[in-house]
Computed example of a mutant assay.
Amino acid sequence: MRRPGSEARRGSGRSCPFLHLAISARYGQLMVAPSLAEIINAPKALLHDHLDGGLRPATIVELAAEIGHQLPATDPERLGEWFAAAADSGSLVRYLETFAHTVAVMQTEAGLRRVAAECAEDLAADGVVYAEVRYAPEQHLERGLTLPQVVEAVLAGFAEGSARAAAAGRPIRVVCLLTAMRHAARSMEIAELAVRYRDAGVVGFDIAGAEAGYPPTRHIDAFSYLQRENAHFTIHAGEAFGLPSIWQALQWCGADRLGHGVRIIDDITVGADGKAVLGRLAAYVRDKRIPLELCPSSNVQTGAVASIAAHPIGLLHDLRFRVTINTDNRLMSRTSMSREMSLLVDAFGYGWADLQWFTVNAMKSSFLPFDERLKIINEIIKPAYAKLLSQYTA
């Protein structure tokens, strides 16, 4: 089926002659386009962020020196540029290879705790009020740590960083997902670990890694166990691989959310008249309100889409899929939640109403208990966006 180009989507800021004005795609209101500085101060919710993909370059340099790990560059600025360039290859496999250097410096309790604390601080400084950060405990055992020690170090780091952020006037709630690697055979062990720590800050489970050749059904025992334990899980699917990956994640494994899921666009056809026709799988995903953890910049880097302007998020938003905006790997993409939102404002002409919609979608789709989700939506997100909407609506 034909994947629609950006011309099929309405509200593209690239075709609008007024740089600082946009039409809200949801309400049709003439609004001042949110600036990056303004977006930073708006509350945001993040569901798909990798701990080992968001380190500060300076931290990598310092931790690598302590353990004698050789880096491609020892100047933090040059190292950050190297990560971005190496990841910007159009290949998911090559993209994933950059993690060898970040994972290498996350093999001690002190290293893990520092990275987690800085993650919480960095997200809070960007205006994120709720974040689900994921990582694979099995990748942090090279220097003798046990799986529980890894989890406890990360949780301690999140608590430490969140406390520092709150003291700085930027409160944030950070929880985590435990990830199992698709190519390995430890998914049941990691699933059991997620259940063991679910009352301590681990809200769910995930599998990640190269999709091709490693279908999610290889880990069906782990997913069945999680369902029996009433636990939440998402699955990386529909990023580098197509509709079969999404179908398996949902219909065989029972995923609550789709990590990326961008290739659902392959089951949508847009005719010459601009009318979209959904295939059976796309209709199911929309009807069931299955959240899509879309990561625009990362999707471009890995070759899942050609550009931000051509990203299916525009059409999926207009068709009212449960779309969320995410960072994936802030270091490799040199991005933040605010930057991702700003890129979409430029590409699709989104206004504050749209950014609120994406944010509420994320909180509705989070793995927190319902009452806790509702509290963040009603007491933090909606009041802040109501103020922004009233201030900037023409």
Rank of each mutant, 00 (worst) to 15 (best):
F99E: 02
G111S: 15
L30P: 00
R114C: 03
T108A: 05
A131N: 04
L51E: 01
V129G: 07
A100N: 06
A37T: 12
A73R: 12
P137I: 06
H50I: 11
L92E: 02
R143W: 10
L141E: 00
A73L: 03
D126G: 11
A131C: 04
A42V: 07
D52P: 01
E142H: 13
P72L: 11
Q29C: 09
A120V: 12
L112F: 14
Q139R: 12
E62I: 03
G111W: 01
E66G: 00
T108D: 07
L145G: 12
L92A: 06
Y135Q: 01
E62H: 02
E121W: 10
D126N: 10
A65F: 00
A58K: 10
Q107W: 01
A85W: 05
C119F: 12
I40V: 15
P137R: 06
T102M: 11
Y95E: 00
V128M: 03
L79H: 11
A84S: 10
E62C: 02
T59C: 08
V128G: 04
H101R: 08
L47I: 09
H140G: 10
E132V: 06
L96H: 04
E77V: 15
A131Y: 01
Q139W: 00
L92H: 04
P34Y: 14
H50S: 09
R113S: 05
A37I: 11
L123Y: 10
K44N: 08
H69L: 11
E38I: 09
A64L: 08
L145R: 06
R113I: 01
G28Q: 12
G127I: 01
A116C: 03
L36G: 00
A136K: 04
A104Q: 09
E142N: 12
F83W: 08
L112Q: 08
E142I: 10
D88Q: 15
D88L: 12
Q107S: 11
A117M: 05
P34E: 06
P57Y: 00
A104N: 08
Y95R: 03
A124T: 05
W82C: 07
L123P: 00
Y95S: 02
P72Y: 08
Q29M: 14
A58Q: 09
L79C: 09
E97M: 13
D49I: 14
P76Q: 09
I60H: 04
R113H: 03
T59N: 05
L71D: 07
D122N: 14
E77M: 13
A125S: 14
D126M: 11
V103Q: 14
E109K: 15
E132Y: 10
L30W: 13
R114P: 01
L145Y: 03
M31R: 13
V133R: 09
Q107N: 14
T108W: 00
Q29D: 12
T98S: 12
D49M: 14
A110Q: 11
L141R: 09
V128L: 07
T146P: 01
L147D: 05
A86I: 08
P57W: 01
F83A: 13
Q139F: 01
